[in-house]
Amino acid sequence: MKNSLLVNTSPHLHKKESVKRIMWLVALSLVPSGLAGVFIFGLHAFWAIGFGIIAAVATEFILQAVTKRKITILDGSAVLTGLLLAYNLPPDAPFWLPIAGAVFSIAIGKQVFGGLGQNIFNPALVGRVFLMASWPKYMTTFVKPMSYDAVTSATPLAALTEGKALENISYLDLFLGNRPGCIGEVCIVALLIGAAFLLIRGYISWHIPFSYILTTGLFAYIFGAKPLFTGDWLSNILSGGLILGAFFMATDYVTSPLTYKGQLIFGIGCGLVTAVIRFWGGYPEGVSYAILIMNAATPIIDRYTRPRIYGS
């Protein structure tokens, strides 16, 4: 995905990259964060992730078998959807929650549009928003980290968006993941390791994640607290699902713009919507809604950032 896209006559070298390989590598890059989540919240989180993946793959298999299409469960995209969905759930959620969400993600978020590459919205986020609208009680109760006995607690983001200062939680805690939150979003270090791998190998470009995070941070700095320009921008970036969303979900190839210019617009849009929902919206977290709204805007961004055709 380098900028030097040259068109040449044959002979061409064949590169081993394929959709399948990229999907599995993205899933691999998410493993550290999952391991950290399981370590922080206990084995329940591990089973939630497992059920999410199994339900997603099984739904994909059943739907493709019923509609007599090619079975593509080994291409890793369903695994990735199930994994990302489970990462977006509270760690003590009942096991039917990841299952219901994964079935909805694959069936409504992906297969009704025609499968991988056809969906307009990120399937994992479609599943999460479905769960959020259907069972808000389970989606908004979070346990304390490292307690293993299900003591519920408010997330740092809930305090931040109400304009309060964080108590008992340092930047280091936020960075390492020692805070209440969703399974895969808490451990920023682990997420950054995976993200660095994807960036260095060129599977994602920096445009969406950086413009997204910078916009949200800037907005939080300006409007996050009274008076203006005193907001706790670092806590706002490190809490909630911003890092997970910016690096792993907003960068989904299918649902994000094609050109770098478009990706910058997409990222800035995501950042604005996230911040607006966080500070003035009804929900404490806006990452999933922001990415979905910008997914809907992707075709129009693509239309207006279409590069000039050579010779025209």
Binding site: I108, V112, F130, A133, S134, W135, P136
Partner: peptide, 22 residues
């Protein structure tokens, strides 16, 4: 009371309608 709340909200109407048209 643990039913799929979204189905009696507006998105549920659009989802049901779309799937039934299909």
């Amino acid at each position: 009371n643990e039913f799929i709340l979204v189905m009696i909200l507006a998105p549920g109407a659009l989802l049901t309608m779309g799937l039934l048209i299909a």
